[in-house]
Amino acid sequence: MTESRQVVIIGSGPAGLTAAIYAARAQLAPLVIEGEPSSTSDQPGGQLMLTTDVENYPGFVSGIMGPELMSAFREQAARFGADYVTAKASRVDLSRRPFSVWVGDPDAEEPTYSAESLIISTGAQSLMLNVPNEERLVGYGVSTCATCDGFFFRQRDIAVVGGGDSALEEALFLTRFADKVTVIHRRGELRASKVMQQRAFKNDKIEFLWNTSVVDVLGDTTVSGLRVRDNQSEEESDLKVAGLFVAIGHEPNTSLFKGQLEMEENGYLRTFDGTRTNVDGVFACGDVQDHRYRQAVTAAGSGCMAALDAERWLEDQAAAR
């Protein structure tokens, strides 16, 4: 049986859960399709579930752990009547209202939920390098979760690939365990914020390998090294490391909406006039539509906007009837 809702929210990071808090307080009894457990950021709570100290979320003077922050968001929305389903949306039909959303079998005849309005906050997830042997060695030296796996690299040498804030955050976190962390970056300078750069440059355990790309991951049963290429001389060499952590950027989780919602060339959802998508009644917030700021606090802010936009839109629909 299809369950009807005024507001369905797909995704449960800072954007989706803030939308849930506002929609719940507006008595719209939102349903949050929160995702499934995973060791990537594609999980309930989103990217912050894989972080440790969040130091830039306002209101927490000495920082807060990412998972703790997200569990507080979730409880806060539940307190005002938000419901959760721990599953992934497998299909949506936005061609007519109410909108249809499936979880589980996408070929099921009846959708699982029908929604008067839909808020999309599916976020973004980390890119992998897509080099040979990388996928095979995930869990055996290649890690998608530094906070989960750093422990296993006590007194070992490891590499972090990337040049942004996330790469340096990971590298700094991993110096708690590893003897040496080599940051491999394809350019000659970092994208990361000045404060992170300063911290990384000051840390004795962090070394930089500039203008370098990883071309292969080496190792039979566990990672034993990386084959890297100097992008200026084109020379290849091997770097002996026991672990590889990749932080080279993100891609939006928008495959569910291909052909139904307008997207930017890079796959992020396009929004107009606040959080509206090109489909009337469908709103988008958080990293799924933001490739510029990508902060927990901006995601939360846009989640609030989406809930207010959806509330207003539902009122207008009711008034027009």
Binding site: P37, Q43, M49, G66, P67, T147, C148, F151
Partner: peptide
């Protein structure tokens, strides 16, 4: 598992 592992906590109820 370990106390400090977020994904470990997520699968505990499962």
């Amino acid at each position: 598992w370990a106390e400090w592992c977020g994904p470990c906590k997520m699968i505990a109820p499962v």
